[in-house]
């Protein structure tokens, strides 16, 4: 992994939100960082090409777009872990799946265009694996002011 240079670091730290909705937004955002329009565009292109940024643009809130998302967890016996992971991951609705160090050791996110599909996927996984699947839908979301500091 290539370390970020000071300009890249300043760009990542300053531009995780608040990108201007103006005619020349890269010029306006660059001015605050002491960079020209072209320098900022090149810097962002380099960070995307290098994989340090996934992309540059709007971060859409999937649920507000009409899609449904639900976190779910399972306690999988260690000797069945890989087999169960394969069964779970085979569902295209599984967006992320993580192993975590807890009795509930498999945590995945089910994502679908309609809410009803979520319950069906969870029921299918319980049936295919013979294990309980705990649905952990968010009942409230708290505002986060997060940004990565690099």
């Amino acid at each position: 992994m290539r370390p970020l240079d000071p300009t890249e670091r300043a760009v990542v730290n300053a531009l995780q939100g608040g990108f201007p909705l103006t005619q020349r937004p890269f010029r306006d955002a660059g001015a605050r960082l002491g960079l020209s329009e072209g320098e900022l565009i090149d810097c962002l292109g380099g960070l995307i090409a290098g994989g340090q940024l996934s992309r540059f643009g709007p971060l859409w809130n999937a649920e507000q777009l009409g899609g449904a998302v639900c976190l779910a967890a399972m306690a999988v016996p260690p000797e069945r872990f890989d087999e169960v992971a394969e069964l779970v991951n085979a569902h295209p609705e599984i967006a992320h799946n993580y192993e975590r160090d807890h009795e509930l050791n498999m945590w995945f996110v089910v994502s679908a265009a309609e809410a009803g599909r979520i319950d069906r996927v969870i029921a299918e996984i319980a049936c295919e694996t013979g294990l309980a699947v705990r649905a952990m839908p968010k009942t409230r979301e708290f505002f986060v002011g997060f940004r990565v500091e690099v």
Partner: peptide, 21 residues
Amino acid sequence: LLVSGAIRRIGAIPNHYALGY
């Protein structure tokens, strides 16, 4: 869409892993 929350923010979307997180 920003005000309504359909867009969380506009800017750099970091890849946490590639940034060392």
